[in-house]
Each structure stands twice: as structure tokens, then as C-alpha cells.
Write a protein that binds this DNA or RNA. Structure first.
Ligand SMILES: [Zn+2]
Ligand SMILES: [Zn+2]
Ligand SMILES: [Zn+2]
Ligand SMILES: [Zn+2]
Lengths: 147, 147
DNA sequence: AAGGTGTTGTTACTTTATAACACCCGGGTC
DNA sequence: GACCCGGGTGTTATAAAGTAACAACACCTT
């Protein structure tokens, strides 16, 4: 999905939910999507720089909080960075394949994995709310390049 | 496993591997184990305080790096904290059930989950090195208490 | 107009983590 | 012993990531 389509999709979703995708929030979303890989909050701030002036951290963190709540982006815990959601608007539990070499991250949804987790969780009485599943390693390209 | 046994186990392992579990590293390991829940680097530093003097951050981070390398502790990414490994010395891929209410964390090893991940990974050509699997939610006790 | 709610701007600060350099100690080598 | 070398430690300073608190504003409702 290209940037334009993703943004339009986001706008539709927010309209449906009566959530306000303000210009500022939209801009942050656009930057995250265009980065096409995990991008940190301070990197976003740099890209939002206007001449001498750079917005203060809360500006971007508030936008990111909104986008996270709306499920338009994900946070990659092991990288302290954010990435556009590949399935915005759908209920999904995703896993992230994080390449430690090139930095690329792929969002995958393995149904079986969700089921297995549910089973484990039911057995132990744990009630999950937010799963964090990240696999650090080498993507196919970087793996090939190693030979 | 109690603290004393865990420390003895750690010493045996390091001896086998010719890794140096120095007094300082041992002390940090002891503090992590005794905490019995995730503990942050700066919290450890406070506990290492000797009168007025508190060690500088690199002191504890270096010890933590060693303990991580030796597989004696785990890092909980979503908490920026560290916890003793419940299966030190064994090859294992573990998942962490993180209670967002009481802060307790349980380390579980679900074999099926490891298999499912391997399958997914093989399909996509991704070569995993470090899995980060954390389930945030409510532990059994806190869940019951909610009613 | 008055009040309420939500968004933004701004300052200051906290928490988490690392770079860089000096020092020391132990083991081998000459 | 003198020398070197490597790993571990102490120390200072700094980077990177995230938040509290308050003021200003915009928009909507009454
Ligand atoms: Zn997603
Ligand atoms: Zn790669
Ligand atoms: Zn473990
Ligand atoms: Zn709990």
C-alpha cells in the first residue's frame, strides 16, 4: 500500500470512529509511513524541523500516542521506534521480524501463533491485553549476503 | 529455586564456560534474583549504594551485559528492566507474562510456540537470533481481584 | 457571552543508556 | 625483576528516550 492510499485509509477510519486526525497527527503518520522502516521519535522531530525551530518532544509523542490508540502505527519495543501498521483497521495480533543488519521490519500475522498463545494463557489464568512479539535476526536478503 | 541455589548454579555454569563471574557481577546477579520481579538498572544502582557513594551507571550496565551474555538474566524490553532466568544453562526460548497491575512477571516456555515461530520464519527466509515475546496483561491474582 | 473539552506550544525535567579515558590487576614472556 | 597485554573496574561526561505541568488557543454547546 502506498503512502497516499494509507493516509486516505487512515482518514476514513478516523472519520468512522469520530477520532480527529488533525493536520499535525496526519503529518506524523505520513512521516512514519514514508520512512518505511522503524523511526524514532527524535528522528521524527528532526524531520518536522522548520528552519531553526524544531518542535518539542511532547508534540510528536502526543501524535504518536494518538496513532497508537487508533491502531495506525505500532511501537517496536526492542528498537524504541515506530512503524506504520500494515493492517490498519483490522483486529490483528501481529509479530515483527526485525533485521538487526539492515533495519528492515516486516509485520506478519500468524494465526496459529495467536491460538497457541491463547491456550498457554488460558492454562495459566493470565489475561493478556497487549502482546509484544518481535523476532530479531537477519532478513532473507541480509542472510543471503552473509554467504 | 532459591537465591543461594541459583547463585551456585550460576557459578558452576561460568566455571564450565571459563567465564568470570566476578564478585561485582555476582552481586548484581544476586540483586536481580532477590528482587524476584523485573528490576531496572538504576534501581540496582540504588541498591548498590554504599553510604554516600553510588556506583556510576556503566558499572551496573557492564555487569548486566555479562549476565545477559551468559543467559543468567533476561531483559524485559517493554519494561526496560531485568529479571533472573528461570532456566539458566538450558537452551530455551521463553515468553514472559507481564502483569501490568502488580508488576509480576512469569517466564514460561511453550514448545509449540517455538515450533510455530520456526515454521513462520522458515517460510519467509528470516533467520532469527533473539526472540522478544512478552505478553502484557493481568496475572491470575490481579484478574480475580478485578471482579 | 460563558463555559467546557480537546489540541497545541513551551519549559523544564526524569529516566535510561553509552562513549571515552584512566587505572589496576593478573598472567605470560623475555 | 621488567615488560607487555588483556580484561575488569572507576569516573566523567554526554546521548537518547520519554514525561509533567502549565499556558494558550480553537471549537462547540449552552
Ligand atoms: Zn498492524
Ligand atoms: Zn536485513
Ligand atoms: Zn530464561
Ligand atoms: Zn498481577
Amino acid at each position: 500500500m502506498n503512502t497516499r492510499a494509507a493516509l486516505q485509509h487512515a482518514e476514513r477510519l478516523c472519520k468512522q470512529r469520530q477520532a480527529r486526525l488533525t493536520p499535525q497527527r496526519r503529518r506524523v503518520l505520513q512521516l512514519v509511513i514514508e520512512a518505511d522502516k522503524p523511526i524514532g521519535a527524535y528522528e521524527l522531530l528532526e524531520q518536522m524541523r522548520d528552519g531553526e525551530r524544531r518542535p518539542a518532544p511532547p508534540t510528536v509523542y502526543r501524535a504518536l500516542d494518538f496513532l497508537l490508540e487508533q491502531g495506525l502505527i505500532h511501537r517496536i519495543e526492542s528498537l524504541h521506534a515506530f512503524i506504520g501498521c500494515a493492517h490498519a483497521g483490522t483486529r490483528h495480533t501481529s509479530q515483527f521480524l526485525v533485521c538487526t543488519d539492515c533495519g528492515q521490519v516486516e509485520e506478519v500475522c500468524t494465526a496459529d501463533l495467536g491460538k497457541t498463545l491463547q491456550q498457554e494463557v488460558q492454562r495459566s489464568g493470565f489475561l493478556p491485553s497487549r502482546p509484544v512479539i518481535e523476532l530479531l535476526g537477519l532478513c532473507q536478503d541480509c542472510n543471503k549476503r552473509t554467504y
